[in-house]
Design a protein around this nucleic acid. Sequence first.
DNA 1: AGGTCCGGTTTCCAAACGGATACCGGATAT
DNA 2: ATATCCGGTATCCGTTTGGAAACCGGACCT
Lengths: 117, 117
Amino acid sequence: MAVVTAPLAKDMFDPLCPSDLNPIRVGDKWAGMIVRCLELGPARFSQLRVPLTGITAKVLTKSLRALERDGLIRRAAGEYSLTPLGRSLLGPLDAACAWTREHWDELLDAREGLYPH
Amino acid sequence: MAVVTAPLAKDMFDPLCPSDLNPIRVGDKWAGMIVRCLELGPARFSQLRVPLTGITAKVLTKSLRALERDGLIRRAAGEYSLTPLGRSLLGPLDAACAWTREHWDELLDAREGLYPH
DNA sequence: AGGTCCGGTTTCCAAACGGATACCGGATAT
DNA sequence: ATATCCGGTATCCGTTTGGAAACCGGACCT
């Protein structure tokens, strides 16, 4: 999950941002990003596919159903939106993002073996 | 990951605590619990296996290697301990646990279809 | 009637994950 | 010398995950 940049920043989903470095994840691979995409307001299926570059319809459907089942998002009139519960997740999510942003260099160094080794 | 109870509480790893309800996860299935186990001090391989009921040696090894590779834990003299980086993760981890603890009922209700449905 | 878009579902497939089990090398105890 | 424990590793296997691609029903346009 891309957590390094501010919400909905242009490069939030930049493939060059190896977000799987982030040890903190929300739900499945895409759930965190989906919640983030809905932060500013409801969105439709095809709208979500734009920022979530590379996601297939099947996987998006599955992630959405899981989020819906858990009461984090809601579907109404063809639009997905955060429930209050989902919205309340934004706080911890931001905390997680802040942590990763803050320790990005260390994570990178560790992966490259520059750390203790 | 078991997040409902306080760190190292007796039932932290109670199988009856369906911790996969928690949408926030750290690393792989066991990583969060491992970090939590090391919170109070270093531990050896076999010590870790006690609270992590059911984990096999192979999986524990793999999780430990991943945490080590990412610079979150360190291995020295047969003991695993948190690095400063790993320790810094405890904050967001606690935040995530607090969130889940706080919204446990809602999560449960959603899963049972008692929510909007 | 035919074409297009939207919001999916279905099928197929490869890779990753996690568990069970057996094995193994070094240290220590007997 | 043998047995045991510790800290793993190797092998096998079933399940899950996620991607590619094809298909599909309803709405809408023309």
